[in-house]
Amino acid sequence: MPDTLAIKRISATPSALIPLNSLRSGGPVYSKLVDISKCIGCKGCEVACKEWNDLKVEQTTNFGSFQSHKDLSSNTWLLMRFNEVEVGDDLSWMIKKDACLHCEEPGCLFSCPAPGAIVQYQNGIVDFNQDHCIGCQYCVSGCPFDIPRFDKETKTVAKCNMCIDRVEAGLEPACVKTCPTNAIEWGIKEDMLALADKKLDRLRERGYEHAAIYNPGGVGGTHMMYVVPHGDRLEDYSLPAHPTASPGQLRGLNVLQRVGSYLLGFGVISAFVHFLAVGPESPEESA
């Protein structure tokens, strides 16, 4: 079935909690698979991302790292992080492709109060619609991976959109297209999981006994997965071990909303009942 960009969730609508299910559902569900062991650190993906998405170039500085920028920004949606860590006697780069993971249960979308500012498609892509963004940055605190970045000029938030315009046209995202070692792969999520299993076997044969797939269940799985050689050292990759972004995180808010509706309704009704039962103090008493 072709990808029709059927919508799954829209922020600040009932579909945020109860995903839409339309006749057009059932199309492909994609995922990126980032094999960290195959990354040679060329940063071609960063350049491809900037070019395809026409993102402003930012002045970089040497801060004693192989890394290009210190952090993501509203104009840098993809950053290869080169964490320098000692493994045994050796120095090792714990490389992380830092960009939106496109969660199955997106914390950004759950926490967004602006209808339509964040949309999740049935194919797994979570996209920000800046036209509807109000700049509150709740998505920033709702994201367990610290990905969305606020743009002080436009007063909106931006992040990787999985090159949705390419995906819609049947192409792979720009970073995948440009990667010279196929460290970033793209395809149907099930196929990518099977591929990840094969990669794990090979890594274990090479002695990476803790090699693991990063597809955290706390966010319902992600549509960018990693094959991590040192799966026992997730924090060294700057990957949270137990990210959560289920709607449960905001359950407190939902309870408050309901209590609040009743409370304010109760206030209005009580005032009205008092008015009918007791009425105003008679004017002559206070005249």
Partner: peptide
């Protein structure tokens, strides 16, 4: 949000008592 709920309820009571209930 929680403070808003309290504040909203108080606003309703405050306005009602100050206008309609006690001329």
């Amino acid at each position: 949000y929680a403070a808003t709920l309290g504040g909203g309820l108080f606003l309703i009571v405050h306005v009602y008592l100050g206008t309609i209930a006690y001329p």
